[in-house]
Computed example of a mutant assay.
Amino acid sequence: MSDTTSRALSLLNLLQTHRHWPGAELASRMGVTERTVRRDVERLRDLGYRIESSPGAAGGYRLEAGSAVPPLLLTDEEAVAMAIGLRVAASQRLVSGPETTLTALAKLEQVLPAPLRRRVSALAEAVQPTGLNAGAAVSSEVLGDLALACRDGERVRFRYTAASGEVTVRRVEPHSLAPADRHWYLLCWDLDRDDWRTFRVDRLADVQHTRVLFPRRELTPDQVEEFITVARSWVRQPVEADAVMELPLDEMRAWFGQWGQGAEAEDAAHTRWPVGGADWRETMYGLSWIPAGVEYTTDLAEPSRGEVREMLERMLRALAAPPPPPRVAGR
């Protein structure tokens, strides 16, 4: 670093520590002339820093807010504090725009020396905000790596452990990260499956950057939300069943879209689709989305099977019975 650059950074550091500096005191602290201070101030202004100056015996310099964010000069303690704050914000979803928080964290930790990164990790583990429901533990390093890959359009490789315990290595083109309920999800294009997939980030490990860039596949915000909503539903439900419908797999997927995830071909003409819910009513609601006219069977177990049957029989009797008399006006 040149003497000029080093001196300008020293001047910036001083300007950031006090609201107002007399020119003579700045010159004295830096061991230069007031004329040199004026030249260094101009260099900082050229970099985008808004530095106000006032003449006279009580005059001097002060750093003001500008119209854009210039580079910041942080001490070790300030950098650690910011990194910890960003980690907490990211892990607890305290701010909107989660990827913004994650990319800011990744940028900061990327330039932190190893000793400071270790301090951040140690301190962040001890910081546990109250009043928030924490989900499964997620590595902020993994979140940062994935956020940068989403931003830069870089393919990554990682090891994924499914809910069943099956471990696979996936090659993906990351699209976006989103917090939902108490978990983080990665939406990406799976290169081996040739389709969109959503992964729980807490089940990810060994993220590897390939340095291979890809053209971004566009999705609308509504499409992203639907992917995440479907992913959230892929947890074990209290009432689960399979429906085997008389519909080929490709037609079934065309009808159900992302909600058809998990469906498998039973044979050329039939598709097996897992469905579930918090109770038999939610499971029955899922079954009601099978297209009209498509016959199906289900292995819904008792007692839910009997409860659905009783409710449907009662509903059929109500529909077959004469309608109730119309409401009398005024009653």
Results as ranks from 00 to 15, higher is better:
Leu204Ser: 01
Gln16His: 09
Arg118Glu: 13
Ala243Glu: 03
Gln223Ser: 09
Arg157Cys: 15
Leu191His: 03
Leu247Ser: 11
Ala292Leu: 10
Gly330Cys: 10
Val120Ile: 09
Thr5Cys: 01
Tyr160Ile: 02
Pro274Tyr: 01
Tyr61Cys: 10
Val275Arg: 00
Ala301Gly: 10
Met30Leu: 15
Pro215Ser: 06
Ser140Pro: 14
Leu11His: 05
Gly48Cys: 05
Pro55Thr: 04
Leu213Tyr: 13
Asp222Gly: 09
His209Thr: 03
Asp267Ala: 01
Tyr185Cys: 04
Gly59Glu: 15
Ser54Arg: 13
Leu249Thr: 02
Ala263Gln: 09
Gln16Ser: 12
Glu99Tyr: 02
His183Ala: 15
Glu52Lys: 10
Glu282Phe: 04
Val224Gly: 05
Thr103Lys: 12
Glu282Gly: 02
Leu14Ala: 08
Leu177His: 02
Arg314Lys: 11
Arg281Ile: 11
Leu11Asn: 05
Asp190Pro: 12
Ala263Pro: 05
Tyr185Val: 07
Leu132Glu: 13
Leu177Cys: 04
Ser54Leu: 11
Glu226His: 12
Thr271Phe: 01
Ala205Gly: 10
Gly60Pro: 09
Ala106Val: 07
Ala124Met: 01
Pro113Ile: 01
Leu312Trp: 10
Leu219Gly: 04
Gly276Asn: 03
Ser91Glu: 13
Leu44Asn: 03
Leu146Ala: 06
Ile290Ala: 10
Ala57His: 14
Pro113Val: 07
Ala320Thr: 06
Leu15Glu: 02
Val244Asn: 05
Arg211Asp: 13
His175Cys: 09
Arg193Asp: 12
Glu166Pro: 00
Asp242Gln: 14
Val235Ala: 10
Thr229Leu: 08
Leu112Asp: 05
Pro291Ala: 00
Val230Asn: 07
Ser67Leu: 09
Ile228Gly: 05
Thr220His: 04
Ser6Leu: 13
Ser28Trp: 07
Pro129Trp: 08
Trp289Asp: 01
Gln92Gly: 05
Leu12Ser: 11
Gln128Pro: 02
Glu218Leu: 11
Glu310Ala: 15
Leu63Phe: 02
Ser28His: 11
Pro174Tyr: 05
Arg19Ile: 09
Trp280Ser: 02
Arg236Trp: 06
Pro113Ala: 10
Arg327Met: 07
Ala83Thr: 08
Glu251Val: 00
Glu99Val: 11
Arg93Asp: 14
His20Leu: 09
Leu9Asn: 13
Asp194Gly: 06
Arg309Thr: 01
Ala104Cys: 00
Pro323Asn: 05
Ser10Met: 07
Asn13Cys: 08
Tyr49Pro: 00
Thr229Ser: 12
Thr75Glu: 14
Arg7Trp: 00
Trp289His: 11
Gly144Asn: 02
Trp21Thr: 04
Val201Gly: 01
Leu148Ser: 00
Pro174Leu: 04
Gly276Lys: 04
Ala329His: 10
Ala83Lys: 09
Pro113His: 00
Val37Ile: 15
Arg87Glu: 15
